[in-house]
Amino acid sequence: MENQTKTHLFSPLSQHGLGLKNRIVMAPMTRSRAVGSVPNALMATYYAQRASSGLIITEGTSPSPDGLGYARIPGIFNEEQVKGWEKVADAVHLKGSKIFVQLMHTGRIAHPENMPEGSRVIAPAAIKAKGDMWTDSSGMQPLPLPEPMSAADIALTIQEFAQAAKNAVKAGLDGVELHGANGYLLEQFLNPHVNTRTDEYGGNLTNRSRFVLEVVSAIADAIGKDKVGIRLSPYNTFNDMPYYDGIFDTYDHLVKEFEKLGILYVHVVESAARELEEGRRLVETIREHFSNLLILNGGYTGEKAEKALESGRADLIAFGMPFISNPDFPQRIKNSLPLASPKTASFYSADQVGYTDYPFYE
C-alpha cells in the first residue's frame, strides 16, 4: 500500500510492474456484441472510448467452447478471436490505458443454443440452476441440466484456462482476471449446494477450493503471477448460488493461498458482503491477508471511492454501470459533471445503439 502520501482516485499506480495513470478501474460487464464469439471493431471502439480509466477489465470471455453460455459473448480460444482481441488491445493502448481480459467459463449458467456445435453444458455436479436465459434463436429458455465434470474434464478445463491466458498475452492484453464470482464455473466449485462431488474436488472447503486454486496456479505458471487477478463475490446469491455455512472460512482460505501464489490482485464485489457484519469483517480480513493489490467494487461514488483509497481499504476502485453511458466517466467525476443515464433495453443488443453512441460531455 502506498500510504506515505495520500492516495486518491487520480493518483498513478506503479506497483508490481503495473503502471496505471489513475486508480479507476472499468469493471467487467457483459455487453453481447461479439457476433460469432469473435471480438470486433465495434468492441475496439467501445473500449477505446473508455480508456481514460487506469485499467479496463473486459467483459467475461470464454476460455473454451463449453464456456460460451450466453448469446454473443466473446471467446479467446481460437486464432480468429486472438486477432480480434489484438485490435481491442491496440485501441486501448493508444489511449494510454491498460486492459486485462476477464476469463469467464459459465459452467451450468448456459444454454446449448448459445454455444457452438459439439460443446457441452458442464458443471461440478448435475444440479440445474433455477432461471431462464436468452437465446437469439428461441428467445427465453430454461437453463438445462448440466453434465457433471469428469476428472478428465477438470484437467482439460484447467489446460484451457492456461492456454487462454497465453492467448491473451499473445494478443497484447496486459493480463487476465479470472471470474470467480457471480455463480459461474469457478464459484460453482466453491458452493457445497452446487458442488456435491465426493472426489478430491468436493466435500470440505479445501477440496471445494482446489479447482479454483489449480486454475489460478496454472495461469500464473503460464503467463507470470504479475499478470493474474481474480474476481470474487462472497455472500452473493446471483445465478442461484445459495448461502452456505463456512463462506467466511472458504474465502479466507482462498485469499491466503492467493497470497502464497503471489498473484497481482484480488477484485472483490462487496455489495452483498457489506450487508452483513461477517461480510464486512471478511473484506477487512482479505485486506489483512493479501499484500498485493485489492480492487473493491459495488455501488461506489467518487466520494466513497476516495475514502476507501485514503483509508487504505483498497488500492483501486472498480466502477461498472456508470461507464456504459459515460465513456468519459473519470473526467465527469473529477470535474463533478452530471452523469448520463444508461438505456437498459440496449445493454445486451447486437449493434452500436446503447453501446458506442453515448456522447462525451461537452
Rank of each mutant, 00 (worst) to 15 (best):
L264D: 00
R274W: 07
L282K: 10
L294F: 09
G299L: 06
G298T: 09
K304N: 14
V283S: 06
H267C: 06
R274T: 13
F290V: 11
R287D: 07
I263K: 02
L282E: 04
E288C: 10
L309S: 05
A273M: 10
I317S: 03
N297R: 08
L294I: 15
Y265H: 10
G298S: 10
N297Q: 13
A308T: 04
G279N: 03
E306K: 02
S271F: 07
E277F: 09
I263D: 00
G320A: 04
L296N: 03
E275V: 13
E278D: 13
S291Y: 08
H289C: 07
L264E: 02
R281P: 07
Y265I: 03
L316A: 06
E275S: 13
I295N: 09
N297Y: 11
I317E: 01
R280F: 11
S271A: 15
A318E: 07
V269G: 14
L276C: 01
A305D: 09
I295W: 09
R287I: 02
G320L: 00
H267Q: 05
L264K: 11
S291F: 05
E288W: 09
Y300W: 07
D315Q: 07
Y300L: 05
L264G: 01
E284K: 14
A272L: 04
L282M: 09
E277T: 15
S271K: 12
K260L: 11
L293W: 11
G279D: 03
I286W: 02
G279E: 04
A318L: 10
G262K: 07
R274Y: 08
E284A: 15
R274H: 12
F319D: 05
R313L: 15
G279W: 00
G302I: 01
K307I: 13
E275A: 15
S291T: 12
V283P: 01
F319Y: 13
E284I: 10
E278M: 10
G302P: 02
E306L: 02
A308S: 14
S291G: 11
L282D: 07
G302H: 01
V283W: 03
L296T: 01
E310F: 08
F319Q: 07
E288I: 12
I317Y: 01
F290K: 10
G312K: 05
L296P: 04
K304G: 15
L276Q: 14
I317T: 03
K260R: 11
A318C: 10
A308P: 05
E277N: 12
I286V: 14
L316P: 00
E277I: 15
E259Y: 03
E306W: 02
L293I: 14
T285P: 06
N297C: 14
A314K: 00
A318M: 04
E277W: 06
F319T: 05
L282N: 08
T285C: 12
N297K: 10
L309P: 01
V269H: 12
S271I: 11
I295D: 11
I317P: 01
I263Y: 01
K304Q: 15
I317C: 03
E303P: 00
R281L: 15
S291I: 04
R287N: 09
K260H: 10
D315I: 08
G299Y: 06
T301C: 03
V266W: 00
V266N: 04
I295T: 06
L276R: 14
I295A: 06
A308V: 08
G299Q: 05
L294P: 06
D315V: 09
Y265K: 02
H289G: 08
A305S: 12
G279P: 02
